[in-house]
Write a protein that binds this DNA or RNA. Structure first.
Length: 570
RNA sequence: GGGCAUGUAGCUCAGUGGAUUAGAGCAUUUGGCUACGGACCAAAGGGUCGGGAGUUCGAAUCUCUCCAUGCUCACCA
């Protein structure tokens, strides 16, 4: 289906064309036609200001243009009236019986209501949560994780075939440090005194102590003369499990775990380097070309030559290192290879969720992709700003007992998956986010999560009561539904528009915001529109029960889109 | 210093490509209600949309400039 605003926009566009063909309006190029609900409810459901914008190019008063447009609008069944209001708005009112039909739509197919066809026939990939698996998921990273999953849900609902992917950075120096850290813990557990060579590189998380014990239980001391590698593999395996468990707790499941290692195994990393060399974008030097900073020059005096990517050819401020002087690649090279791999898999849309701190890096990768001769257009990077967690008005640092800081697991324990999902999705990714634990756990009206879910609970309560009383909804006469119900149904009709914005802008926070608005439209009505009032007409009761069945499906739908549960009771 | 963001009610924040009188939740004040589960409802107060200038019939929105804040500018990932 298409959002209603689009259909209305098309009607107006057509009306202007028809008026132009009939010679009633001058032939000028049409501006963007913008449709919005009027401020006052009695002005109709949609208002168009296009006549104001056309006034100047057409050389006519806006009110006159508006009248001509209104005259040429052919009303489809969902529109009841077209009115003109000063200074030149064309206001459109929906057919109320058509709105009432939404009840049946929601009852029969509420779980697909507002599905759009923007992405039909297209494949999308959403990559999120990617990082070195050197520790548990932190709160900071969980914002991107939940955003990525929510974007995937929106893309699915708007027609895309979606894959959720985790780029598992299991190569590189950090993973070697992790392996080395576990090796030291292992030796320590075997009774050897542990010497920590470099605190900067040593992972202090106590989970490594547990892993060391487990490893001894499995293999005894047979690994005591091994280097870091088997330890890295073991730690990686455990970390992989842990991350998946945490994801499952919060409703996230990746379809594909793409191992960074595989890019080395397949030779893709070095092939990428060769291709860049062939294309003339790589040079070998101790220092970047054109470096003028004397401090940098002095510092690099002892360096051996590295291989540099001439990213300045693609608009970068400075060139970037691809291969370090010790022969190891930086993250840049495998990342470029990875994105080439993505593009070769033929996605129409490849969304990548990254922290705002990765902005520069994402640009370098994009330039690398361009240097390789690929069109980076399918790649969309969404940067999420930082999240700061507050408890009792103070910054929250989590438990230090196990050497962990700010883990998502701990936050789930303290609050709930639903609360975390909602609070992290509520805000635009561009805005810095303050997560107040006290609000998230509070079972009071300051918590919007409960306010939204409570709407679903209330519908469930009514339907339970209907079952007890043996009242069904078959053959309900929807024309009995009054202004209050219609008002709520109108709000429901906005979801397709919200979905379109969320999908095209990759901004699921609009849905979170809409969910609150929907609950806000529901609760006041619920008080007045009673299904079991004394002496209620049985037909009206039946119509209202059908309405609440639809309402329940609507809340379920919105909560599903956000990845939240829709409880029957609270 | 450069880049990317952010600045809207006491607080947390929406506000797509300009449009009729700038929105929500919480908090505050006042009033309802013993319920189809009140985790509710009604009403009110609260804003020179960071400052200034410009474009326009019209600017929170576009342009310029200044101020403030965050992130970032590695042979770390």
């Amino acid at each position: 289906m298409k959002p209603l605003t689009h259909q209305v926009t098309e009607l107006i566009r057509q009306a202007i064309h028809d008026a132009q063909s009939a010679g009633e309006l001058p032939s000028v190029e049409l501006p963007t036609i913008d449709i919005k609900p009027p401020k006052k409810a009695d002005q109709g459901d949609y208002g168009a200001s296009v006549a104001l914008a056309l006034s100047k190019p057409m050389g006519k008063p806006p009110i006159e243009i508006a009248n001509i447009i209104a005259k040429h609008i052919t009303k489809p069944d969902f529109i009841s009236t077209v009115e003109v209001a000063p200074p030149g708005f064309v206001n459109i009112r929906l057919n109320e019986n058509w709105i009432r039909e939404l009840v049946n739509t929601l009852i029969t197919s509420g779980n697909t209501f507002a599905n759009l066809d923007i992405g039909t026939g297209k494949r999308a990939q959403v990559e999120f949560l990617s990082a070195n698996p050197t520790g548990p998921i932190t709160i900071g990273r969980s914002r991107g994780a939940i955003l990525g999953d929510a974007i995937a849900r929106v893309l699915e609902a708007t027609g895309y075939e979606v894959e959720r992917e985790y780029y598992f950075n299991n190569a590189g120096a950090q993973m070697r440090n992790l392996g080395e850290s576990l090796r030291l813990r292992y030796l320590e557990a075997l009774g050897q005194t542990m010497e920590i060579p470099d605190m900067e590189k040593f992972y202090q998380g106590e989970y490594l102590i547990d892993y060391a014990k487990d490893l001894i239980a499995e293999k005894g001391d047979s690994l005591k003369n091994e280097d870091w590698q088997p330890f890295k593999e073991y730690a990686e395996k455990r970390m992989f499990q842990w991350i998946q468990e945490t994801c499952a707790r919060i409703g996230i499941k990746h379809d594909i775990f793409f191992n960074e290692n595989s890019l080395y195994d397949s030779g893709a990393v070095w092939k990428t380097l060769e291709e860049l060399q062939k294309r003339g974008y790589v040079y070998t030097s101790v220092i970047r070309e054109g470096e003028t900073d004397e401090k940098v020059i002095a510092k690099s005096a002892d360096f051996k030559p590295a291989q540099w990517f001439k990213s300045t050819a693609f608009g970068d401020d400075e060139d970037r290192v691809l291969v370090k002087s010790n022969g190891e690649p930086t993250y840049t090279l495998p990342d470029i290879a990875y994105h080439i791999n993505k593009l070769e898999r033929g996605f129409d849309l490849a969304v990548n969720i990254l922290g705002a701190d990765h902005f520069t890096q994402a640009q370098v990768v994009r330039r690398g992709v361009e240097a390789m001769g690929y069109d980076p257009k399918p790649i969309h990077v969404v940067h999420v700003q930082m999240v700061s967690v507050v408890r009792d008005g103070k910054p929250f640092k989590g438990s230090t007992r196990r050497g962990l800081f700010d883990t998502l697991d701990e936050l789930i324990d303290l609050t709930s998956a639903d609360a975390i999902r909602y609070f992290l999705l509520q805000r635009s990714p561009d805005s810095h986010l303050k997560f107040d634990i006290n609000v998230a756990v509070s079972q009071s009206n300051e918590n919007p999560v409960y306010y939204i879910q409570y709407a679903h609970v209330r519908c469930s309560g009514i339907l339970r009561e209907a079952e007890v009383r043996g009242v069904g909804i078959d053959g309900a006469d929807l024309s009995l539904l009054g202004a209050e119900e219609l008002n709520f149904l109108r709000k429901c009709l906005e979801l397709p528009d919200v979905m379109q914005i969320a999908s095209e802008n990759l901004s699921p926070h609009t849905i979170a915001f809409y969910a609150l608005e929907l609950a806000n439209a529901f609760h006041p009505m619920y008080d007045r529109v009673r299904a079991f009032a004394d002496g209620i007409d049985p037909n009206l009761q039946k119509a209202r029960l059908a309405f609440y069945t639809a309402t329940k499906a609507m809340f379920k739908r919105v909560l599903d889109l956000l990845g939240m549960t829709a409880p029957e009771r609270m």
